Simulated assay, not measured.
Amino acid sequence: MNTPSHVILNLALLGRQSRSQMNSPIIWGALLPDLAMFGFYAWAKLVARMDEATIWQEVYYQPFWQTVFDVGNSIPLALLAMGIAFWLGQRYPQWRSGGHVIIFLAASVILHCLADLPLHVDDGHRHFWPLSNFRFESPVSYWDPDHHGAVVALVELSLVLIASWPVWKLLRSRWLKALLIGSIGLMGVAYVGFYLR
């Protein structure tokens, strides 16, 4: 799935008006698994000055970069963080609110990983690293038209549109609401440009 979709869907699933202070950890948890990818792409384009084919067909698959990506996409590491935060919150009451922040961040990371798991053909992550090197190769892609990407992208866009209403009600800031509208607009334009041209 696309990064903005993770943010919107995770907010719709985990966010509540009664605990709006958890919106920020939910947003960061939805972003965290993709941050290494953004850093990698910035380095490859701006520092190493690589072309798109070299980035995505060669360097992306190098073992070093795959491990970097897998760390942020690791369900066991997110569960470990969640467990430690829960334990600390139970043992040290003064740490309870900080523990809640980490629990919501980790839960959002896990939702991101679970949404990505069935939607990568040959570019997926080892979601159970470091416990396993298993990498699920799905017959369905979130982007590749040769693997139902147009249908999956349309379903993704539809889910995001449905989830946007409860997310709109959660957001307090005009800036975040504008970002929500802009993200949906960009996803719509990208869908039309990539699949309907």
Rank of each mutant, 00 (worst) to 15 (best):
Y41R: 03
R174H: 13
V71W: 10
S158H: 00
V160Q: 00
M82P: 02
S138W: 12
H100F: 02
S141P: 10
V121C: 12
S158V: 12
V47C: 11
D122C: 06
A150H: 11
W143D: 07
S183N: 12
L9H: 08
L170K: 06
T54Y: 01
V151A: 13
P139L: 09
M50Q: 14
W28V: 07
S97L: 10
V155E: 08
W65D: 02
F86W: 14
V189W: 15
D144G: 05
W87Y: 15
L154N: 11
V167R: 02
H125M: 09
N23I: 04
A107W: 07
E58G: 03
K177A: 05
T3K: 08
N23P: 03
V109A: 06
V7F: 01
T67E: 05
Q57I: 01
A115C: 07
Y92F: 13
V189P: 09
R197F: 05
S173C: 04
M1W: 00
L161K: 07
R91N: 13
F69Y: 13
R126W: 06
G39P: 05
P76M: 13
R16M: 06
I26V: 15
L131Q: 08
N10G: 12
V68C: 08
R19Q: 14
V59H: 03
V152Q: 03
W95T: 11
V71G: 05
G185C: 15
Y142F: 15
K45D: 01
T54I: 07
F136D: 04
M22R: 12
I184S: 02
W56H: 10
L119K: 04
V101N: 01
